[in-house]
Each structure stands twice: as structure tokens, then as C-alpha cells.
Design a protein around this nucleic acid. Structure first.
Length: 386
DNA sequence: CGCACCGGGTTCTGCCATCTGC
DNA sequence: GCAGATGGCAGAACCCGGTGCG
């Protein structure tokens, strides 16, 4: 925010021609109006593609500066907002304040999604009410706005939002599901109803195609296992499913089971990333003497492994192998790859210190919480001493 | 009691491209 | 031609504890 005064100075420096326009005032909404100036077209700010041609709303700029909004950032994001004669920054600020948002949060929201100030009080109240159907407190909503202003403000279509809620309920999702969905992937609710329907239809079709008996349940399962699914493109989901099927040479029922299980979350990955991760995993495992069938089995039992990027995966595997664990043990217990390389390395060291025998005891000890692990180490160390 | 199995929690926005309606 | 609305993309794991069984 330190840049703000400087920017102001810069702006006034470059402002030469002053254009005054008269506006037909709309009395209802408190707005920044009146003076408006034309920015000098010789503006030297270099990273702007073109200096704004139309005039910016002077009192709006002033208001925003006073509110602590990062005007430079905001202008870069949505320059059109600054040329509007009527905006509702005060109304918005009042409204959000009433919901418990701090001035800092409000400024940050406007900085990141300036169009928020074009929403009327009526609109805001209506939208808030719809969100409150799902959230119990205003504070929850505020925290999401602070996190992702765009999710709340990008669409002005409250009717669509309402339809989305009804649609999701019609899928058999309960309030608790909606709560999780809106908390985790708020953008879902700003999607057009049509877009959400398309994804649901895609999922139902996939289920049916794979011989599933209950497409409705399938959709519910996928959504609850992957809350981001509805903000993915159908192209991405389709392509990832194809990749999984062909890479692993899965039968229909195997693929169905994979998707209904932990496989749902890897549908998120970008198409190329999923392929890249699979190829790397396969190469790496084969270089250690694994068969493709072993790899397939491992992925089916632990699909999340495909989430791990090449560099991280290789580092983890190398770390385990160096620590005296065999590739066969990893194939059988891939879940040890859940933990960070650092965590794994640290545990291996501690286990070595107490002379842990992986051949005899297996590697399950690596897949356990810190608390349990420490307790175990303590016991092992004690038995060493005695 | 100790262990293995299993599932759940956390998390994911901010930017750009395209269309649409005025 | 404009601003607004909407779709889509890149980015890329880690950790915990309940529970049931021997």
C-alpha cells in the first residue's frame, strides 16, 4: 500500500486536460460522481498497454485511496470500473462492515475485484442471503470473500445462484455437502447453471458408459470426493479419464472403481501434468525392476501417487531406497509416499538410530502420525538402553 | 495393547480469453 | 467499441487419528 500516495502524485502530475461532465444523478445509490478528468494521453506509465482513453472518475479515485484500496492494482485488473460515473464503494464498504469485515479486508477485496463496487445494496443483500442459506454465520462468508472476492462478486446473476443451489440439492446433496462445496470451491456457485449441468451430465454419462448402475450416486460420490470437480472443464475431466484408462489399460469396472474411490481427486490435474507424472512414475519404477502390472496395482490402490510431480516423487523414492527400503516394499505400501521427503528422511534417520529393521518389521511405521511415531521411537530407544 | 487399515481434513486463486449485449 | 459476464487455465501434497482386529 506504500505505493498509493506515489501513484496519486503521478496521476495528478500527468493530468493536464480537465474535462468536466455533468451527470444525471441517480439519487438512490450513494455514488462517487461529479468531477471527472481526462487522463493525459501522453501518460508515461510504461506497463500499461494503452492509457485509458475515457475519463476516470476523480472522486471515485479519491474515495478508494481514502479507503486504502490499492488503486494501481485495481486499475490494472478492471480499468472499466474507474470510468464509471456511478459506483457504490461507500455502500459496499458499509455493507461489508456491517457483516463484520475489517477496513483492511474491504480494501483488499476492492483492490482484487474492483467490480464489487458496482453492485447495488439490494443485489448484495440478496446475494448474501442466498449464501447465508448455506453458511451459518456472516463471519464464514467474510472469510471466503477475503480469500476469494471474485467468487462472490464475479456474477451479478442472483437468480442463477439460486438455481444452482436448487440444482445441487436436486442431485441429493445435503446442506452439509453444500457447505463444504461453497467453502472449498466457491466458484462452483458462480458458474452458470448450464455449466454445472454439463459436468453432472458428463459424469452420469461416464458412469453409465462404464456399466455403473447408479449414475446419481456416482455423481454424488465424485463431488464429495473431489469438491473442485465442478470448477473443472469437462474437457479436462474427460481427457484425464481417457488418460487413466489407456495408461493403465483399465477395464470398465476397474476404471469405475478407481473413479469412485480415491481416483476422483486426480481428475483435477491438468491433462499434461497427469500424463507427465504417469510417465515419470512408470519409468522410475521400471528402472528399479518393477513390472507394469505391479505399477498398475500400486496406482489402483493409491491413485494419489499420480498427484506427485516428477521431482518430488523421485526424491521420495530415492530417499526411501537409500534408507534401506526395497522397491517391493514401496509397491506394497505406497502410502508412505504421502509424507514429505523431509519428513521421510527425518524418520529414516531416527529409525536408523534405534536400529529399526525394515525387513523384519515392514515399513508401516513410516505411515503414521508424528505423535504415534515419536511414541514408538521413544519405546524403541528405551528398550535399546535396557 | 499395538498395529494396520482406512478415510478424512486442510486446500484453490488470480489471471486471461472469449462472448455478448448495449 | 465498451464493459460486463463467463469459461478455463496453471500451480502441484501433507498430515492425523478413529477403529477394529489379533
Amino acid at each position: 500500500m506504500a505505493a498509493v500516495p506515489g501513484v496519486r502524485a503521478l496521476l495528478s502530475l500527468h493530468r493536464s486536460v480537465i474535462l468536466q461532465r455533468s451527470f444525471g444523478l441517480v439519487p438512490v445509490q450513494l455514488a462517487s460522481t461529479s468531477l471527472s478528468r481526462r487522463l493525459c494521453s501522453a501518460t508515461t506509465r510504461n506497463n500499461e498497454p494503452k492509457p485509458p482513453v475515457a475519463s476516470e472518475n476523480e472522486s471515485l479515485l479519491e474515495n478508494l485511496n481514502l479507503m486504502g484500496v490499492d488503486v494501481t492494482m485495481a486499475r490494472k485488473r478492471q480499468p472499466g470500473v474507474f470510468r464509471k460515473s456511478f459506483t457504490n464503494e461507500h455502500g459496499l464498504a458499509q455493507f461489508l462492515k456491517g457483516k463484520g469485515a475489517s477496513p483492511k479486508v474491504i480494501a483488499s477485496i476492492i483492490s482484487r475485484y474492483p467490480r464489487a463496487i458496482t453492485r447495488s445494496i439490494d443485489h448484495l443483500e440478496q446475494r448474501w442471503k442466498l449464501w447465508r442459506n448455506i453458511f451459518c454465520t456472516d463471519a464464514e462468508i467474510v472469510s471466503i470473500l477475503a480469500r476469494s472476492p471474485e467468487s462472490f462478486f464475479r456474477s451479478s446473476d442472483n437468480e442463477n445462484l439460486e438455481k444452482n443451489i436448487h440444482f445441487l440439492i436436486s442431485l441429493g446433496l445435503i446442506r452439509k455437502d453444500l457447505h463444504r462445496l461453497l467453502t472449498t470451491a466457491p466458484r462452483t456457485f458462480s458458474n452458470s447453471l448450464e455449466l454445472n449441468k454439463q459436468m453432472v451430465e458428463l459424469l452420469e454419462d461416464i458412469c453409465t458408459e462404464l456399466g455403473g448402475q447408479n449414475p446419481e450416486q456416482f455423481v454424488k460420490t465424485i463431488i464429495s470426493r473431489n469438491l473442485y470437480i465442478l470448477i473443472r472443464s469437462t474437457k479436462r475431466v474427460k481427457s484425464n479419464i481417457d488418460t487413466l484408462r489407456s495408461a493403465l489399460k483399465l477395464t470398465d469396472s476397474e476404471l469405475l472403481a478407481l473413479l469412485e474411490g480415491h481416483g476422483a481427486s486426480i481428475l483435477d490435474l491438468s491433462n499434461e501434468y497427469l500424463k507427465k507424472n504417469f510417465i515419470n512414475l512408470q519409468q522410475k519404477m521400471i528402472s528399479h525392476g518393477c513390472r507394469k502390472s505391479d505399477i498398475k496395482k500400486m496406482i489402483i490402490s493409491y491413485p494419489i501417487i499420480l498427484y506427485i510431480g516428477p521431482e518430488t516423487l523421485n526424491a521420495k523414492l530415492d530417499c526411501l531406497l537409500k534408507g534401506g527400503i526395497t522397491i517391493k516394499q514401496i509397491l506394497e505400501k505406497p502410502k508412505v509416499l504421502d509424507y514429505s521427503t523431509q519428513n521421510i528422511a527425518g524418520r529414516l534417520e531416527e529409525l536408523q538410530r534405534v536400529g529399526y529393521d525394515f525387513k523384519k518389521n515392514g515399513i508401516n511405521i513410516l505411515d503414521t502420525s508424528r505423535k504415534r511415531f515419536d511414541a514408538k521411537i521413544e519405546k524403541l530407544a528405551a528398550s535399546l538402553d535396557s
